[in-house]
Simulated scan of single mutants.
Amino acid sequence: MSAEYYYNFCQQHMGQEVEITDHHGKVHVGKIEKVDRENVYLRTQAPPPTDRGYGMFFFPLAVGALVAIPLIGIAGARRRPYY
Rank of each mutant, 00 (worst) to 15 (best):
A75V: 03
Q16V: 02
T50Y: 09
G30W: 11
K31M: 07
Y83D: 11
M14Y: 06
P47S: 09
T21N: 11
Q16A: 05
F58A: 03
R37E: 15
E4H: 03
E38P: 06
Y6M: 01
A75L: 10
E4A: 03
E4S: 08
A3D: 13
Q12C: 00
M14G: 04
G76F: 14
C10W: 01
A46D: 11
T21W: 14
R43F: 11
T50E: 14
P47R: 13
R80F: 05
L71G: 05
A65L: 02
G73F: 08
P70Q: 09
K34A: 12
I20Y: 14
A46G: 09
G73D: 12
Y41P: 05
E33L: 04
N39V: 13
Y7P: 00
H24N: 11
M56V: 00
P47Q: 13
P60H: 00
E33V: 01
A68T: 02
Q11W: 00
P60E: 01
N8E: 07
R79G: 11
D36A: 05
V63R: 12
A3Q: 12
P49W: 12
E38I: 10
Y54K: 06
G15P: 04
I20C: 09
V18L: 10
Q16F: 06
G76N: 15
D51Q: 10
N8S: 04
F9N: 02
V27M: 14
F58T: 02
G30P: 12
G30D: 15
A65P: 01
Q45F: 02
H24P: 00
Y7Q: 06
R37L: 14
R79F: 10
P60T: 01
R43V: 03
K31L: 07
A77L: 08
V67K: 04
I72Y: 03
L71W: 05
D51K: 07
P49D: 14
N8F: 04
E38Y: 15
D36L: 01
R52A: 06
T50K: 15
P49M: 12
P70W: 09
M14S: 05
P81C: 12
P49S: 15
G76L: 09
D51A: 10
Y5G: 00
Y82N: 09
V63H: 08
L42I: 11
I20F: 11
F57R: 02
G73S: 11
T44W: 07
E38F: 13
P47H: 12
G30A: 09
I69M: 07
V35S: 04
A77G: 01
G15S: 05
R37Q: 15
Y54S: 08
E4P: 00
V63M: 08
N39Q: 15
E4D: 08
I32S: 03
I74Y: 01
R43H: 11
K31Y: 08
N8C: 00
T21L: 14
G15Q: 06
R78H: 12
Y41K: 13
Y82C: 05
T50P: 07
K31Q: 13
V18G: 11
E33M: 06
A75I: 03
Q12P: 00
D22E: 06
D51V: 07
R43Q: 12
M14L: 14
A68K: 12
A3V: 02
